[in-house]
Write a protein that binds this DNA or RNA. Structure first.
Lengths: 209, 209
DNA sequence: CCATGTGAACAAATTCACAGCA
DNA sequence: TGCTGTGAATTTGTTCACATGG
């Protein structure tokens, strides 16, 4: 289908959805793009443009039905289906993410943690046992994991990514500070803390001197 | 100064720097934008455009001197100065980040961890004790922390941000899934895992049906 | 009448392509 | 000669402003 939606738009859709859920909790049933924008520091024109890409969700002269819009956006992002995560790399970050609420809420759930260190294999993180990557394919198949989370050191990132791809994983969230060489059949989102820190550093040098 | 550099450019500068350091470790002394682009899947024209914003770093007909370019970019990002981080929120994520290598390498260092839970105050994370936010101003002053890292729940993010700002923090890395209402004297970078997961979810729904 | 949905205007970012210098 | 540095062309993203329809 029309898979050519800009990632910027998609990010904003996530934000709209989150905002709408808040409104819903507050019992608000209808909202205009104008008021939604004011409430959450967004742009009303952009809200309309973004939404219009996916259909006519609003009622002219009235606004949007909160619950209906939530449903539509939820379906759009596939949040009505469960998404199972497999974490590769049980260091500080991997371990924390395995327990992290954001990774275990809504439709997302961590179903497996893998680490190549034999000393770690067998250890427990919450209710999960750390597994060896030797049987990654089996693990992926058994748990129906769809999203791989890479929390290995930079040097090991590419091989682990390749391994995940070989096991049928199509979506990867990469925390290793490397540009991976990508298989075209996958999507990868990079989360790179150091880049953010360095950006903040740049700002601090500008303001301090 | 010319503080109006796009964040996109700045992100790429970080990536160039990282790539150059790798080349340096491999003993490469000179590189052209062309070969740098090939090696790390970048765009050569963009490399030149990005660098040219900050001066004439290259030699026509030859390329760039790796070590010199590293020096210049390091200074540009202020990575020649130490940057101290204070982590606010000692949950799973905050605790992991306090120990995370990426947050304790190069010029970055975690110098304090703060949590409002009295049961946590006094506990140790590595060589740091968790402190109470009551004396945040003192803590910031004593540790010379410059960058605040927000790892508190969404509901608590705004107040903790405001508190950091009141204590003189100008740069914040926000992990809470909220759009903060910003003080204009600060820069904030948001890291929002859920947005990334939802983007991946969108892709999976497109390819699976 | 009022807020959506949208073409048209504008702005930002990227890519192209080449003049100019080592 | 061969690369950088850079205007010009193009693509992408955002904002404006209004015709359209509930």
């Amino acid at each position: 289908m029309s898979s050519d939606v800009s990632p910027l738009t998609l990010n904003r859709i996530s934000i709209y959805l989150r905002s709408l859920r808040r409104l819903q909790r507050q019992g608000i049933e209808r909202i205009s793009s104008q008021r939604l924008a004011e409430r959450f520091h967004l742009s009303s024109a952009q809200i309309r443009k973004d939404l219009a890409q996916f259909g006519e969700f609003g009622i002219r002269g009235v606004g949007y039905e909160v619950s209906e819009l939530i449903e539509r956006l939820t379906a759009l992002l596939g949040l009505d289906l469960p998404r199972r995560l497999i974490i590769v790399g049980a260091g500080n970050l991997g371990t924390a993410l395995a327990r992290f609420v954001g990774f275990n809420s809504g439709s997302f759930e961590v179903v497996a943690v893998v680490d190549s260190d034999p000393d770690k294999v067998g250890e427990r993180i919450g209710r999960l046992h750390i597994r060896s990557p030797d049987r990654l394919e089996e693990t992926v198949a058994a748990t129906h994991a769809e999203i791989g989370v890479l929390t290995v050191p930079a040097e090991a990132a590419q091989e682990n990514y390749d391994h995940l791809v070989a096991c049928g994983i199509q979506a990867v969230l990469n925390f290793a500070p490397v540009r991976l060489e990508l298989d075209p059949r996958t999507v990868v989102k990079n989360v790179d803390f150091r880049i953010h820190l360095e950006e903040l550093g740049y700002f601090l040098t500008r303001t301090q001197e």
